[in-house]
Design a protein around this nucleic acid. Structure first.
Length: 256
DNA sequence: ATGGCAGGGCACCCCTGA
C-alpha cells in the first residue's frame, strides 16, 4: 500500500499533471488532493474515472476544495469535520484498502494578528477532537494533507525569515504535537531523511531553485500503520514541471 | 520593511496563499 498527499493549487490547472503523476506511480493506493478550487458541478469526475480511478470530492469556488483519488473503491465517504460548522470545504475522508484515509486542508492563518489565525487554532482543536473518535473507530488511519504547519525548525529553510509568523507559531506547533500525542507518527520522520527536505516552495524569488522551502504537507499515521511503514518521502519531480503547483507530493509506503 | 509569483473572480484590480 502507498498513500500520498498533494496540494495542487487549482485542479483545473493541474488536472493533467495529477493524471500523469498517478500514471507514473502505479503502486499508489490513494492520493489526497487539496486546493482543488472548484465547485462539485465542474469537478472532472468523468475524466478521472475514465482514467481508471475512483474519486470523492467536495469543493467550492476560488478557495479550498479537497478530493481523494484511488485505484480501489472508496467507502464511507465523509464530508467536512462533523464537529465544526464551517462553510469552507477543507476535509474529506474515506475508507480504502482497509485504511481510514482523511484528507485535510488545514487553514493557513495568514498572520498572527489576522482573524484567520484564531480560526485556524479553533479548526485544529476540532480536528484533534475528531481524530480521537476516528482513531478509536479505525486503528489503521492516515491524516494526510496540507497542514500549514512546519513542525520543527529543521522543516524551515531559514527560521529567522519565518519566526513570528504563521506556520511556525508555538500554538500551531503545539496543535501538531497534540496530534502526535494521540499516538500518531509523522511518516516522513520515521526514517532518516536528507536535510532541508521540503514540500512547498514560494513561486517568488527562485525559491525552488534555491531550495528555500518549508515542510508543511504531512501524513500522520496510527501505530497499526507505523508497524507496517516501509518507506516515506517527498517527490520533488512535479515541482520542476511547467506551471507547477507550489506544493509537491508527499508519500508513505506500507506492507499490505 | 517590502514585495516578489500564481490562481481566480463579474474583473484589468483585488484577494488569498504560505
Amino acid at each position: 500500500m502507498r498513500f500520498a498527499t498533494w496540494n495542487v493549487n487549482s485542479l483545473k490547472v493541474r488536472q493533467q499533471q495529477v493524471l500523469d503523476w498517478l500514471a507514473a506511480n502505479p503502486d499508489l493506493t490513494a492520493l489526497a488532493l487539496q486546493e482543488t478550487k472548484m465547485e462539485d458541478s465542474v469537478f472532472p469526475q468523468a475524466e478521472i474515472e475514465a482514467a481508471g480511478y475512483h474519486v470523492a470530492f467536495i469543493g467550492q469556488k476560488t478557495y479550498n476544495g479537497v478530493a481523494i483519488i484511488s485505484r480501489q473503491p472508496l467507502t464511507d465517504i465523509q464530508y467536512n469535520l462533523p464537529n465544526f460548522d464551517d462553510p469552507q470545504k477543507r476535509v474529506i475522508a474515506a475508507t480504502v484498502a482497509g485504511v481510514r484515509f482523511i484528507c485535510a486542508y488545514i487553514p493557513n492563518g495568514q498572520s498572527l494578528d489576522s482573524d484567520k489565525y484564531p480560526y485556524k487554532l479553533a479548526w485544529l482543536e476540532a480536528m484533534n477532537a475528531y481524530l480521537i473518535d476516528e482513531i478509536a473507530r479505525h486503528p489503521k488511519l492516515i491524516l494526510a494533507g496540507d497542514y500549514n504547519i512546519a513542525p520543527e525548525d529543521r522543516d524551515v529553510h531559514d527560521i529567522t525569515k519565518w519566526a513570528g509568523g504563521v506556520l511556525v507559531s508555538p500554538a500551531e506547533r503545539a496543535a501538531f504535537a497534540g496530534m502526535i500525542a494521540l499516538g500518531l507518527t509523522d511518516a516522513f520522520r520515521n526514517f532518516e531523511q536528507a536535510e532541508k527536505s521540503f514540500s512547498w516552495w514560494d513561486y517568488r524569488g527562485f525559491s525552488f531553485k534555491k531550495n528555500a522551502g518549508l515542510r508543511i504537507d504531512h501524513l500522520l499515521i496510527t501505530p497499526d500503520l507505523t508497524r507496517k511503514l516501509t518507506a516515506s518521502g517527498i517527490d520533488i519531480e512535479p515541482r520542476k514541471h511547467e506551471r507547477p503547483s507550489d506544493h509537491t507530493p508527499v508519500w508513505a509506503s506500507f506492507t499490505d
